[in-house]
Amino acid sequence: TFELKGKVGKVVKIAEDHYLVEVEGDKWIAYSDEKLSLGDRVMVVDVDGLKLKVKRIP
């Protein structure tokens, strides 16, 4: 999972307290300090167990 840091993915689902992002064909639970929208491109900035911390990228 640490090899996911720096990888780019996209938001595929928005849940009440987390996001579902697809990175390299796999779906992961993710969270972010900013509000994300469906389809946003994101970069993995940290890995916390099986959850990814992501940030939006242009």
Rank of each mutant, 00 (worst) to 15 (best):
Y31Q: 14
L20A: 06
K7F: 03
V21E: 00
K35I: 11
Y31L: 11
W28Y: 14
K5R: 03
K10A: 15
E16P: 04
V23R: 01
R41A: 11
V21T: 10
D33I: 12
I57Q: 13
F2T: 15
K35M: 10
V12I: 09
K53S: 11
L36K: 01
K27E: 06
E16N: 10
D46I: 02
V42E: 00
L52I: 12
K5E: 15
L50G: 14
K13T: 07
V47E: 04
K27Y: 11
K51L: 14
P58K: 04
L36T: 04
D48P: 02
V11D: 00
A30P: 00
H18P: 03
K51S: 09
K51A: 11
Y31I: 09
F2I: 15
K5M: 15
M43Q: 08
E16M: 10
E34S: 07
V45H: 08
S32F: 04
K51Q: 10
K7Y: 04
V8T: 08
T1N: 15
E34W: 07
K7C: 05
F2C: 15
D33A: 06
L50R: 06
E3D: 03
G39S: 12
K35R: 09
G9D: 00
K35L: 10
T1M: 15
I29G: 06
K55R: 10
V47G: 03
G39L: 11
Y31M: 13
G9C: 03
D46R: 02
D48S: 07
L52W: 01
K10C: 13
R56E: 14
G49W: 10
E34Q: 12
V54I: 05
A30I: 01
K13F: 10
S37M: 09
V11E: 00
H18S: 12
V12Y: 10
G39P: 06
D33N: 13
I29T: 10
S32Q: 14
K10D: 12
M43Y: 03
D17M: 12
V11Q: 00
V8L: 05
G6P: 00
K13H: 04
K55V: 14
G39C: 09
L38E: 08
R41Y: 13
S37C: 11
D26M: 12
K13D: 08
T1C: 15
W28R: 02
I14S: 10
L4W: 02
G6Q: 01
L20S: 06
V54G: 01
A15L: 14
V45W: 07
S37V: 10
E16A: 11
D46K: 02
V11S: 02
I29V: 10
E34T: 11
G6W: 02
D26L: 11
L38D: 14
K5G: 04
L38I: 12
E3G: 01
L52F: 02
Y19V: 13
M43S: 05
K10R: 12
R41Q: 14
E24Q: 03
E22L: 11
G49T: 06
V45M: 14
R56S: 13
K27R: 11
S37T: 12
E22P: 01
E16T: 12
V47W: 03
P58N: 05
